[in-house]
Amino acid sequence: MTKVKTLDDLIRLRDELRTKLELREKGEHPEQLIQVKVAMATCGIASGAKEVMDYFIDELPKRNIAAVVTQTGCMGYCYAEPTIEVTLPGKEPVVFGYVNKEKADEIIEKYLKAGELVDGIIPQTFKKPN
């Protein structure tokens, strides 16, 4: 248990608990959660996708973001691995390329928290046929 001494500590504690509650409530409706899919095919793994995925898994709860991290296959952007696909609730998925820990940090701070786009987006030039 972390020390609670100031009001700020209490606020931090509240945010932590709120995220956990949110995670549980929205867990039943995954479409309401932020989804981070890490491409984990040979190309991804060889360029460090495992570390990037672990970074997201460990960092998101620390920063009180209710999100779910999953793995996916290669999206065909092998040259830009590690790649991730982020889906904010109610929005179209966005694919980011060349994601290392620094890039991941930027994506969390800017895109996940504020919805601001960051460099490194791979435009979706094709849509999967239904």
């Binding site: 995670l23 672990d54 898994i57 460990d58 960092e59 998101l60 709860p61 620390k62 779910v68 991290v69």
Partner: peptide, 11 residues
Amino acid sequence: DRLPLSQGELR
């Protein structure tokens, strides 16, 4: 199951 744990803690 059904505990409010994040993926990070679970891992």
